[in-house]
């Protein structure tokens, strides 16, 4: 009983905190504060995962999300020199439209959830508490295993890293056609730069 009571209290505390911080995320005029609020939302989510018995996931959440993604966002905010910039409030119409859309969604979802009847879980079924169960499933070659998505995910991350580097690299000068790179345009360009294009072609023998 003690456990259940603590769970209730923690759920509402963490849930309220997450919602408040989320409101701060979308309403803060300073992006840095929004990023900070996001971090608190993610931390609260990690706590909620713990309440749900997903300890491994909670760890991942803190490590990847809070430790990686939020830091990346903070860097991006710095790089786009928006850290000290006060963002303008959106137009009232836009705010109204967004509020109507999101509240309608919430009402709709609430309506669905209220009618949702889940089959009672089998009594005594306990979640696999240890991370090793998840790890085995992830690397399982069998029909229920996730090894293929897992490997694809690694490819995706690799592609994202390379793509991120390629995109964020210094852009080429304006008078040159857009290329994927900028340092050695001649090698990867589809369209030749003007200086080379204007040269008359030499007749082949």
């Amino acid at each position: 009983m003690m456990h259940d009571a603590a769970l209730t209290v923690l759920f509402y505390v963490l849930g309220a905190g997450a919602i408040l911080c989320a409101l701060a995320v979308v309403n803060a005029r300073r992006l840095l504060r929004a990023a900070l609020a996001l971090m608190f939302v993610l931390l609260a989510s990690a706590g909620l995962y713990l309440l749900l018995g997903a300890e491994f996931l909670a760890g991942i959440q803190v490590l990847v999300y809070v430790g990686g993604i939020v830091i990346l966002i903070v860097f991006a905010v710095m790089l786009t020199s928006a850290a000290d910039l006060l963002e303008d409030h959106p137009s009232p119409g836009r705010m109204l439209a967004g509020a109507v859309a999101s509240i309608s969604f919430l009402v709709f979802a609430g309506g669905v959830f209220a009618r949702l009847e889940l089959a009672a879980p089998a009594p005594g079924a306990r979640p696999p508490a240890d991370a090793s169960a998840i790890g085995r499933r992830l690397l399982d070659f069998g029909s229920e295993g996730y090894v293929l998505p897992f490997e694809l995910l690694s490819l995706l991350l690799l592609a994202a890293v390379i793509g991120g580097i390629a995109v964020a690299r210094k852009t080429p000068p304006r008078d040159q056609p857009f290329t994927s790179g900028g340092d050695a345009p001649g090698e990867v360009d589809i369209v030749l730069p003007r200086s080379q294009r204007d040269e008359p072609e030499e007749p082949r023998a």
Binding site: R94, A97, G98, A101, S102, S104, F105, F108, G111, V112
Partner: peptide, 20 residues
């Protein structure tokens, strides 16, 4: 894109309501 997003969400909700 955001304006389109509003309509997009509205459309989805409308279709979901119809389905429901």
């Amino acid at each position: 894109v955001q304006t389109y997003g509003v309509w997009f969400v509205g459309g989805i909700l409308f279709v979901l309501l119809l389905l429901w």
